[in-house]
Design a protein around this nucleic acid. Sequence first.
DNA 1: ACTGAAATTAATTCATC
DNA 2: GATGAATTAATTTCAGT
Lengths: 163, 163
Amino acid sequence: MIDRIDRRILSILQEDSTVPVAEIGRRVGLSTTPCWRRIQKMEEDGVITRRVAVLDPKKVNAKVTAFVAITTNEHTDDWLRKFADVIREFPEVVEFYRMAGQVDYLLRVAVPDIDAYDDFYKRLIAKVNIADVSTSFAMEQIKYTTELPLSYIVAEKPKANMS
Amino acid sequence: MIDRIDRRILSILQEDSTVPVAEIGRRVGLSTTPCWRRIQKMEEDGVITRRVAVLDPKKVNAKVTAFVAITTNEHTDDWLRKFADVIREFPEVVEFYRMAGQVDYLLRVAVPDIDAYDDFYKRLIAKVNIADVSTSFAMEQIKYTTELPLSYIVAEKPKANMS
DNA sequence: ACTGAAATTAATTCATC
DNA sequence: GATGAATTAATTTCAGT
């Protein structure tokens, strides 16, 4: 499925997607065409989902992160679907998880400051009924990466060898 | 600093950085050259920090997210520097925040399953001394985006404004 | 599956207004 | 500051092994 070479290609593209295909090929010991084909296939297969520009949170005035732990009394699929639809409308919510344990949902919210968070919070609870909310603020983002670990990729199936 | 047109360009590039400059120009009502110049400038200014390929967590076998809340007794700058260096070596840690409130640090860790998290955890505590650790697992990632909200950008005319 | 070259399309520069 | 053409560099296709 994803072999060693693919993994090295992914590692390069996760770090910098502007590296030319010919250069990626050179680094992994492949000429342009097969390297391009591998990238193409990983896009078709949905391994690579998108290529995006990453912005500096400070420069766009959204450097404060709030983690919002939400507990609710409603646990139906229908409620979650509605809740998720509301959440998706808020560009401030950059991550949204359904949790195991006491907390039901966790949001990561990107805002300029505490006041803007407070405003966001009011707009949120006006749209959706949530029982209990607990917010924690991050003082500093020490590490943030879109790069996923590639070491857990399941090893390529050994090819059947005739002869 | 960042005007309405820049903002629209950022919005496009945050969503899909493969859109050709000529097409971006067309969408924002600009011809290729000035549009290209604006993008170039935003890269120089550090507004756009990088262009990356985003992968599907399921496809690379890292779909489980663990949130690790860490409390420590050591609060010196030196300890944090060392701690941060250790953390940066773990590709499983995709986000790392210094928090306000009871919890000192929060990690988001990407792993295939609970067993892999346990292994990661052992490797982590072997490298760094942390007093209290509380882990919560996400059952489902309902929303994840690298797109930051652009509505908080302050459109400033005057020059010489840092960060 | 890969190579190397050709064809196509995009990025980048430049002359000009 | 913007435009449109010219140039450079990349992507994508194709013939051959």
